[in-house]
Design a protein around this nucleic acid. Structure first.
Lengths: 327, 327
DNA sequence: TTGTAAGCGTTATCAG
DNA sequence: CTGATAACGCTTACAA
């Protein structure tokens, strides 16, 4: 930069001013500096700058970068950040607490200016206090941690569970429902189940609810489907996400039970509409969630400290064929 | 760090040595320093360190962070990097050249130590020379740029096209084949088509090949499927990726042409096996691709300059039901 | 094994 | 609007 200044015949200060847009510089000199930058092929050193002022990189922690829903969230986060000149340092915990702790430390050493995190399953107050002691603007995304007071951007899981169960019970008169998938102790899972219970209670009818856990993969969905087929099918199945829903549907088809029960997925990933039968799903718009969280974070960074509040998006039930409503 | 040194009763140099593992420090003092670090709650400042030595963040550019295949690649890249103490600055170009240029510049300003890039469609020598003038270790990933000499990690697209077409022609005696999807000028697309042509030539039989373009979304696949249904179905369809394949399959089903033609997808994403009918697909193992590229980059960074070479993985045809082979 | 001191490229302050 | 000058937190010869 000192070269640029010299080449343009100005002081380092002035050069810095035109680079950052701060301070008042005459249009004439500004253009002269710009020209020097161009001919010298100078490129701004963000790293060096970060040594003085606040950096422009933001940490993003997700459980699994390659799961469709998280991919959507990430794309929203990333585009919002880069649109404002920030860059996202994204890492994936594989939903493991030890990895999460390690990555958190790495991000801290990298001086990220803020943190957006989808906490790994089982995250507790240790995570929160670790972040607090660090004192970095943070937003929890898509999953919250009990007892945390930092802003949270997610969707209303209770409502999601309610919508799914309500549809099965009211529109299809299901008398037995299975909730399938998700980590046993995940907050999303627990909330959705309370939504389910609420819907059942409201319906007034006697409904038998079974609660099953499984990994969030197609394979796990397939296995679960076969077990279900063997042990007697419920009237309806609410899956923790679309991926396992598709696996279940496939397994039931293979077991000769195609269309024998209603299946509802969660997240409404892109391919849900294409599956045969098309998948009824609770849509949560991950991309929007990501954008919202990123915007909130940017706002905090820009000094609007107290303005940030939590945000709960309303999920929407997209009714398709897999729950028995044939288009 | 100066505080740590003081607290431990050593010089900054020594403190630095134990932090980085460089230099020789007696076990006694090392432990003393570690203790001070602990009690003082000191955290290493990677940004400051990068001002002197090479940084430990690596730029990763992809066209679309939320497309399943790229998600797989990214997860491979990310886990390999973080396992070695590097962090990935990931950005998504939305497959647009202007975005790509902008993001490239941002990454440069952030002093990334290396670059892994899936170039946006239409990238040409401008991209290459821009990267060269920058002089940063680079690996092209999954898509190459004509005339680039930097290492490339991808899969053998010609072979992939060949496998798909060969199966349709030899196993199913298809006499008319449509290649559907992908950006018109994408290198992957062109290569796969030469593979297709090769298979047709080898078969010796007269085959009518139609070449159609579409966006890589479910919706585009559905539209294309309806058009195909309207204008007469070919004996077999090779889709540019699984997402459009699923869309096509759905559209044909809706148009009353279920099972009327053979469909082959590409990438073998997780849900391909669960679809009904299950999707025959050319598997490319994106995760492994990502890991390979990341390892190559790490090797270059570690000084093994000349050792890096291109790597072409062999895709594999996973035969399932959508091409007429019922399990 | 430890200490000294010179950078790395930027920003910020403050007096011209 | 410009010029010095002091940080920012760390690495790394070189010397002791």
């Amino acid at each position: 930069m000192i070269d640029v200044a010299r080449h343009a015949g100005v002081s380092r200060t002035t050069a810095s001013y035109v680079l950052t847009g701060a301070g008042r510089v005459s249009t004439a000199t500004r253009e002269r500096v710009q020209a020097s930058i161009e001919t010298l092929g100078y490129v701004y050193n963000e790293g060096a700058a970060s040594l003085r002022r606040k950096g422009r990189t933001i940490g993003v922690i997700v459980p699994n970068i390659d799961r469709p829903f998280f991919g959507e969230v990430l794309s929203g986060v990333e585009s919002t950040f880069t649109a404002s000149g920030y860059m996202a340092l994204m890492v994936s915990t594989r939903d493991r607490l030890d990895q999460q702790a390690r990555l958190l430390r790495m991000l801290r050493e990298h001086q990220v200016a803020a943190l957006a995190i989808i906490p790994a399953t089982g995250s507790n107050h240790d995570l929160v206090s670790s972040i607090r002691s660090w004192d970095v603007p943070t937003v929890f995304l898509s999953r919250y941690v009990l007892g945390a007071t930092e802003p949270y951007v997610g969707s209303d899981e209770v409502l999601g569970g309610y919508l799914a169960a309500d549809h099965l019970v009211r529109a299809h008169r299901c008398r037995s429902i299975t909730y399938l998938g998700g980590p046993k102790l995940g907050v999303a899972r627990i909330d959705r189940l309370t939504g389910v219970h609420r819907a059942l209670a409201e319906s007034g009818s006697e409904v038998n609810l079974v609660d099953l856990t499984c990994e969030s993969t197609v394979e796990a969905g397939i296995r679960a489907g076969h077990e279900l087929a063997g042990s007697g099918l419920p009237d309806g199945i609410i899956c923790h996400n679309d991926t396992v829903a598709l696996g279940v549907a496939r397994a039931l088809f293979d077991a000769g039970h195609a269309g024998a029960t209603r299946i509802i997925g969660y997240d409404d990933i892109a391919t849900a509409q294409a599956s045969i039968p098309s998948l009824t799903s609770v849509a949560t718009n991950g991309r929007l969630l990501g954008e919202t969280a990123a915007s909130a974070l940017l706002a905090v960074i820009s000094g609007a400290e107290p303005a940030v509040r939590s945000h709960l998006a309303e999920p929407q039930l997209i009714v398709r064929e897999s729950c028995g409503d044939h288009a």
